[in-house]
Design a protein around this nucleic acid. Sequence first.
RNA 1: GCGAGAAUGGCGGAAUUGGUAGACGCGCUAGAUUUAGGAUCUAGUGUUUCACGACGUGGGGGUUCAAGUCCCCCUUCUCGCACCA
Length: 672
Amino acid sequence: MKEGLVNWCPDCMTVLANEQVVSCCCERCDSEVEKKELKQWYFKITDYADRLVDDLDKLPGWPDSVKTIQREWIGRSYGAEARFQVEEADWSIPVYTTRLDTIYGVTFIAIAPESKLAERLNVSDEKRTEIDAYKSAAMLKNDIDRGNDTVEKTGVFSGLYATNPFSGARVPIWIADYVLAQYGTGAVMGVPFNDMRDKAFAEKYDLPIQQILTTADGSEVKEGEVISIANGVTVNSGRFSDMSSKEAIDSMAAFAEEGKFGKKTKQFKLHDWLISRQRYWGTPIPIIHCDKCGQVPVPESSLPIELPIISDYLPKGRSPLADVDEFINVKCPTCGGDAKRDADTMDTFVCSSWYHLRYADPNNGSAPFETDKANSWLPVDKYIGGITHATGHLLYFRFITKFLHDLKLIDFEEPAKELFNHGMVSDSSGQVMSKSRGNVVSPIELMEQRGVDVTRLAMYFTAPSDKEVLWSDAALVGVEKFLLNKVIGLPALYDASCSDLKSHFKQADLSSADWDFYTVLNQQLKRITDDSEKLQFNTVIAASMELSREIERATDITPALRNYSVRVLIQVLAPLIPHVAEEIWQTLGFKESIFKSQWPKVDDSALVSQTITMAVQINGKVRGQIDIAPDADSATALSAAKASESVVRHLDGKTVVKEIYIPGKILNIVVK
RNA sequence: GCGAGAAUGGCGGAAUUGGUAGACGCGCUAGAUUUAGGAUCUAGUGUUUCACGACGUGGGGGUUCAAGUCCCCCUUCUCGCACCA
């Protein structure tokens, strides 16, 4: 539990974690978030920051986009801390910098107005009033206004000075709201020569700019424009002059460490996870506050704490549980005296970080789950969710998994091997449908009107699963026709009197036409199988439609083969239209559920057609087509091509320069 | 500003390793069937041209026998981060 500036949503009347603030606004209700100084509970996710970054490399099954977003959100940077002694005081101001090599260019120190360092400055009363006024004004601005780098930078001079530990130079100490209190040390060294922001500030307040770098590659040097570490060479930097930036950083850090005024460090943008919420729906925080004993955890034997049933859940600015006396007032587990429960509940993202473990052991009455059971079922093989959760749920999910692993409750460190980001579904007005927005209405209406299977099929068919779907009822028409006219009619194409349930056929046993059909069937089955694995259901459905037409037209084939093709089609469609498929399966005469049947196996010996239609190009333009065996030799292909009238016409009067023949692909004749 | 992704008919979208661009569906056109409407079935449907053909995957260049696909530059859109020192 710690005191700090927290995000407060005035509409939801609760605090929020950083991850729940989107562009300064509450992710649920879009109200502008305020800053409040409150004492709240946090999970120390920052202790896991390094592992959360490093282990991303162990997740080949996660999309790069999500990994990049997480990496940037955690925001690890390597740099150094250096301390600037405050004049006529017994303390020093620490600053964090990734560019220690520029420290000879420091012409001022800037401290964030909310920083504790600003309070600590021993300034005159007059200055204190000025600084306080500046701080209040800064805190009233929202982060967007403050964070916008086009906005003019402002600050207040404290009247105090500090000493550069490297150069001994005397630099003024300023309070400036372009410095973030919650990152690094809350203070920065101002190097206007190698930083746009510092330059803008220095120009506004007439502070000097001092060159301390030049470029290794001889490119133009401009004040304020950053010279990269790879390209920097130090100048005017005392004994560290004329070094590469890299070299300078290393030897300066060593020097600072020796002199005990600095060292190499790293920083993260990630903050601790604020989990207290002033809401009803959430897990009660299992802490009892006792005047005598302080914060006492609820003993394990009394867990879990169940929410009391109440009638008024509306937010009032404090937890609704705070007003439930019989819940709040308890005896202290340590001393037995009167005490009170913590009234807040946990962020619901806490629950979604571990609930999957409970599925492995749902009836366990004495513990959340048994380690052996969790280990045997998990981690999750394929986790499907929206990319909107990249920095929220998906980060917490990984963090809690690592934490439980460290407690030896589970033996894996990552919750999901594979992650698939599905697209969002927007309603016809373009609003993204989401649980928190509560506009997930249209599919429910649709399911009532047209049935669940039609709705599912329409959703899958409209767009590939990773793309956004703009919902429109027109998408329903085609799939509904397919379902009603083709799929429902499948039993009519099935010869129930044929008891041969063969699923594998040999070329020698079939007529040429039957073998052709069997080949097409296997080609489509392969497409469907591969695309299903990739969750690309739109093409699965397209292939199923094609297959359905093939079956319909194959009236003369042997019944065992036709029956097999009908079974294949209904089996591959079953995951998409479970209700209809199950019913048809029964109609075909099967007693067991279709979902207990095996996914049909692709016959690899029947994937190559006997003849294919190949394009014939002259100078790269299609001029004719030939029907040919896929493995025919070039002479055969060439003579077949010369039987085509338009090929002959385009060859007329020309000299053949080159013939490119790729069996099974193309015949291209280059002429002059 | 930085980072990531995308751009294909009237529309949603297909196209292993570069190899017939537009699969599948919607819409549209014509025909069949029907008392009519709906439904169903058949055929057609990138643009342009009488035709041969020409042109065509956001724009411009390049590599190649061959480019939606590979390389360079540009435009637009979506998403993420946003003074992180």
